[in-house]
Every structure is written in C-alpha cells, then in structure tokens.
Amino acid sequence: MSIPRNWRTRQQRYSLKAEVCNTCNKHIFPPRDVCPHCAAEKQSWTNLSGQGEVFSYTTMYNAPAGFEEYAPYTMALVKLAEGPMVTAQLTDVDAQDVKIGMPVEMVTRKLSQEGEEGQILYGYKFRPMLREAA
C-alpha cells in the first residue's frame, strides 16, 4: 500500500473509525461521502465496539503478493454488532475451529510489510472472544 494511502486510512485500519448517518442513523464502515442506505450526505464520526460474528470464512492457501509469509491464514466476512460488514483476517484461532456465527472481537495486528526495509502496515483483524478462548 502506498505511503499516503496507508496514512490516509490509518484510523479506519487501527480502530475501525466509522460514521453514523445523520439522517437514517445507520452505521457506515468504511466511511463514505454518501450514505449507502438513504443517500444522505451528512455523517458524524463514531467508534464501533469491535464486536461481531463470523458471516463466512475461508483459509487462504495461495496468498497474494505481500502475504506469502503468512499463508495459510483465514479470511472472514465479519458482521459487526452495529451493522456494517467487513472483510478481515481471523487471528489467534486454528482454521478448523472457525465456525459461521462465532463471536469475534477486533484486534490491531500487522497486516503486511514491504520487505525488510519498507513500511509495516497495521490494521484490524478479528479473533475469538478472549475470555472464551482462555
């Protein structure tokens, strides 16, 4: 990811910084200029709880360029408690233990790095609820 793009989206990636629509009150993530639910243009910043559940998942055996060192890893569609869905990796869980409907919580982890000398990209991933895993 380019340096400006990484910088521009950091709050979304580190902490799921989201919006709530001033017109229909629905949560919006990632942020948009126009509400996808009611087409209104005014939104306010909000924080999401980071809680959600697995809507679907897959284990990636053939990783795209930049992710080879992490393969195999599990990707998921996570339905967040506030409504939006995100595509994200699951972490701290073995692939065979993942289930649709499993409650998960957001953590900030390393997504990728540009070699040994380039920037490190951090972002959201999801894991099983810590206290249930313990």
Binding site: D92, V107, I120, K125
Partner: peptide, 13 residues
C-alpha cells in the same frame, strides 16, 4: 508472538 504480532500490536492491546 505470532506472525502478525510485534511490540506495537501488543502495546495497543
């Protein structure tokens, strides 16, 4: 630490 963890990610949590 796992492959996606370092001092930053652990500090954040």
């Amino acid at each position: 630490a796992g492959l996606d963890e370092d001092t930053l990610t652990m500090s954040v949590e």
